[in-house]
Simulated scan of single mutants.
Amino acid sequence: MNLPTTHSIGTPGQPWGEAEKALWRSRQTRKRSYATDVLGVVERLRGCFDVAEYGRLDYPPESFPLFAIRSREWRDDLPCALVTGGVHGYETSGVHGALQFVDLRAADYAGRVNLLVVPCVSPWAYERIHRWNPLAIDPNRSFRDDSPAPESAALMSLVAPLRKRMLVHIDLHETTDSDESEFRPALAARDGKAFEPEGIPDGFYLVDDAEHPQPAFQRAIIAAVAKVTHIAPADAKGEIIGSRVVAPGVIEYELKKLGLCAGITDAPYKTTTEVYPDSPRTTPGQCNAAQVAAVCAALDYALAARS
């Protein structure tokens, strides 16, 4: 893969201003339909689940309703679990894996846990297959008070009443070749920094919470996903994307400090999945199935540990 050394927008070493962000935004084109791919599926799921609009993103001339899917038999005596996808809109299996879990497996957990599933946090980015929102902001570094990203703020508002009741939060992501060829160079240019390639791991991995690690929980998810797709190995430095591998297929981040989605609740069991869809060893169907397997393994482990 030929990697760019500089980005086509901006002046090397100088952060973007509004003119550069406007130029970047003008180059983003709609490539797929949130209404068809996501809202159409959500509408079909209304027959078995409660569906509610929890916010709306207004990016004139467009407006995107945001939807959450809940267990129909919600009970105050049950623990709660949060599944999020599409925080980065370009990460396809995060969105479709979340929807596939609701469609195929969520009913298995009826009466055992209250499920809250938000399949597509960032619909503008989903349609443009991008990491950022139209403000050139990464929602997954913006889960903090007074968030500059409307996507992040809306999700935090939705989850706030349940933050202390969550047993599990699993946030579904992908690491793609375009991270290295497009998104990280753009990030470096936006911030006036030099782009330093890190490499793309070939396989699935997880990001645990460095402040409250749950290694057995992570191992259980890795074991389940390994039956569906391959697990990313450590590189020659014993790292994955610049972070030390603490167990096969597991690295750690300080979730809340970095403003990451997986840090928005007090759930004792939390993780971020990372599927690698560009591998010649996997298919889109396997990527979706890996996300579903990860969600089910997370729920199964947490519920067993609680009993």
Score class of each variant (00 low, 15 high):
264 I>R: 02
220 A>S: 15
115 L>F: 09
220 A>H: 04
131 R>G: 01
173 H>S: 08
105 R>M: 12
187 L>D: 14
131 R>S: 01
245 V>I: 04
87 V>I: 15
30 R>C: 09
288 N>Y: 02
89 G>H: 06
191 D>F: 12
97 G>V: 05
106 A>V: 07
82 L>Y: 04
303 L>P: 06
112 R>E: 13
255 L>M: 15
239 E>F: 00
63 S>E: 13
209 D>P: 02
178 S>C: 06
239 E>A: 13
224 A>Q: 06
140 N>Y: 01
104 L>T: 15
48 C>I: 00
23 L>S: 11
251 I>C: 04
118 V>C: 06
228 V>K: 03
284 P>N: 11
242 G>A: 04
11 T>M: 11
278 D>I: 01
250 V>A: 08
130 H>Q: 09
117 V>M: 06
103 D>E: 15
301 Y>S: 01
233 P>C: 09
204 F>C: 05
73 E>A: 13
233 P>T: 10
43 E>K: 10
101 F>G: 04
45 L>G: 07
144 R>K: 09
272 T>A: 15
153 A>D: 07
243 S>V: 07
145 D>L: 06
165 R>H: 14
15 P>H: 06
170 I>T: 13
125 A>R: 02
4 P>V: 09
126 Y>G: 00
276 Y>S: 00
61 P>I: 12
295 V>R: 00
88 H>C: 10
245 V>H: 01
124 W>K: 04
147 S>P: 09
263 G>D: 07
131 R>C: 00
26 S>F: 03
16 W>Y: 10
61 P>F: 06
44 R>I: 06
33 S>W: 02
248 P>C: 02
76 D>V: 08
41 V>E: 11
56 R>W: 02
141 R>T: 12
43 E>Y: 03
126 Y>Q: 01
38 V>H: 00
93 S>F: 01
301 Y>T: 06
296 C>D: 14
285 G>I: 04
35 A>Y: 06
301 Y>P: 02
55 G>Y: 14
289 A>F: 01
63 S>D: 12
219 R>A: 15
